[in-house]
Design a protein around this nucleic acid. Structure first.
Length: 518
DNA sequence: AAAAAAC
């Protein structure tokens, strides 16, 4: 495997970042297995049983620090294994009481690790991932979140659990009622930490943290970690080590290179038709369509069903049962289109999501990264298409600038002046029709790109830095489980994308050569 | 301004 961490930022005695640690200069940082970090054999075995053999960069970088009991602010791009980055250490610390940092209070059945997530579905997913790694050691993992009956959750707590994963409201509720004892918690994780420390969540998160021992280990993880959040986070942490798993040089550090990104200038009334055409892509697997409002999500799902697509919506106006049913059907491939609000923007990991469509432009660059990051995970490639309508122009301008996508100002791309498109590798003509030789790209069928008229100009973000070596030959859930994709796309691994003809792109990777999949 | 998150 060619993936390797590029640098780790180490703290000085005050916990401040002091510089960059370059792995090549100090020997290998990515050993061949979890065992090399001293991870408990039964955890290693459970991981191996699910096809996970070698740690991803964020995991390799995090493990030694986390097992030492230190606080961590961990940042790695979408789909690169953050969940096990905290899941493995928190489990190891539960089963290995002699490790440094363990406070040696035997409290079987009392929660010793608490993971907090911003949505119920994510809490559920993370619970499952940790449970898999914990299975052979009999560590009990449970999810605590709202929208569901109290009784089963209370029953699980009564029976005894060592790891609790949940959303803030229900956790506080049950803790306040004395059903959830957080006084033995030794590890607290804020997943999607920048979101959890945002205004809407911060008061609840503070309450939860206050219920845990001050001596706890605190770990924050997210793909996006603004400096202001890091500064704020230090108030709740003890000399945190800031760990960033960044792609190799040449990468702008923002978007995932494996996600091919397109932007369409779209008139609101044309969006459904444009979407329908994109959904006819020949090599499309599962697709998530994002909207900014619950109403639009429901409406678009309806429109698509009317047109014969197997779609369902996922948003906060649905009952929890319906939400989970929609996600379950999507995971199982019973429907291949999920139309969601930003409830599904963060963390949700579904195999074989080949396309993400921003039916409504995301609010900011963080949301753009998280939404588009539902595809292109774990070494696979993906396609992200964003519709930008008149109202979105300023919004998109900010995203484009913040992420350095290199896409011309949307106000300019709206112009039909051909010079403005000369640098783009998708040629546009007066009619917006593409020449025959250029019709298939981004996994979109030729028909999809035809006849889109003024709104049909696709503007592809140039690849950053032309270095794709960091795309690991791995696949599967949380980036590491083996398994096949459906829907073809057996192509060769993309080479440096900056100098490749466009038509050779967009092939999903083959699955061979995985260091973890055999 | 929207969405999320407890009852």
């Amino acid at each position: 495997m060619t993936t390797q961490p590029d640098h780790i930022t180490l703290p000085d005695d005050d916990g401040d970042d002091v510089g960059t640690y370059v792995p090549e200069a100090a020997g290998p940082v990515t050993p061949p297995s979890f065992s090399d970090f001293g991870v408990h054999p039964l955890i290693v075995q459970a991981l191996a049983d699910s096809g996970i053999h070698a740690p991803f960069p964020i995991q390799a970088m995090t493990l030694p620090v986390a097992l030492g009991g230190h606080d961590i602010i961990g940042q790695a791009k979408t789909g690169t294994g953050k969940t096990l980055g905290f899941g493995v250490p928190l489990l190891h610390r539960i089963v290995s009481p002699t490790d440094p940092g363990y406070d040696d209070r035997p409290a079987p059945g009392k929660p010793q690790a608490l993971v907090v997530a911003p949505t119920r579905e994510l809490a559920n997913q993370v619970m499952g991932d940790i449970k898999t790694a914990a299975s052979l050691r009999g560590i009990r993992v449970t999810a605590i979140y709202g929208g569901r009956a109290f009784e089963p959750q209370l029953e699980a707590l009564r029976a005894g659990v060592e790891v609790v994963v949940g959303t803030p409201g229900r956790l506080i509720d049950l803790a306040g009622q004395g059903h959830l004892d957080l006084s033995y918690v030794q590890t607290v994780v804020l997943d999607e930490a920048d979101e959890m420390l945002d205004l809407g969540f911060l008061p609840d998160v503070e309450k939860l943290l206050a219920m845990t021992p001050a001596s706890r280990q605190t770990m924050l993880f997210s793909a996006t970690m603004p400096g202001a959040v890091v500064a704020l986070a230090r108030r709740y942490m003890t000399q945190p080590t800031h760990i960033r798993a960044i792609n190799e040089e040449g990468d702008s550090g923002h978007t995932v290179a494996a996600i091919e990104q397109f932007v369409y200038r779209a008139h609101a009334m044309d969006k459904v038709e444009m979407l329908a055409r994109i959904l006819q892509a020949r090599e499309r697997g599962l697709t998530i369509v994002f909207s900014r409002t619950k109403r639009t999500a429901a409406k678009v799902a309806d429109d698509l069903r009317e047109r014969g697509f197997a779609s369902a919506s996922l948003h906060g106006d649905l009952g929890q049962g319906a939400r989970e049913q929609a996600l379950r059907a999507f995971r199982a491939g019973k429907i291949d289109i999920l139309v969601a609000t930003d409830v599904a923007a963060r963390g949700i990991d579904v195999e074989n999501v080949t396309h993400v469509v921003n039916y409504q432009c995301p609010e900011d660059e963080k949301t753009y990264l998280h939404r588009t990051g539902r595809t292109g995970r774990a070494g696979n490639t993906g396609v992200a298409v964003t519709f930008v309508d008149w109202d979105d122009l300023p919004r998109w301008g900010l995203i484009n600038k913040a992420l350095d996508l290199g896409i011309p100002d949307p106000a300019e791309t709206y112009s039909s002046s051909p010079e403005l498109f000369s640098d783009l590798d998708i040629p546009t003509t007066a009619t917006g029709r593409l020449p025959r030789s250029e019709r298939t790209r981004a996994g979109l069928d030729a028909e999809v790109l035809e006849d889109l008229g003024e709104t049909g100009k696709a503007h592809r973000a140039p690849s950053r830095g032309g270095n794709d070596r960091s795309r690991g030959d791995r696949g599967g859930r949380d980036g590491q489980r083996g398994g096949d994709r459906t829907g073809g796309g057996q192509g060769s691994a993309p080479a440096a994308s900056g100098d490749r003809p466009a038509r050779s792109r967009n092939r999903r990777r083959t699955r061979g050569g995985s260091p973890q999949g055999s």
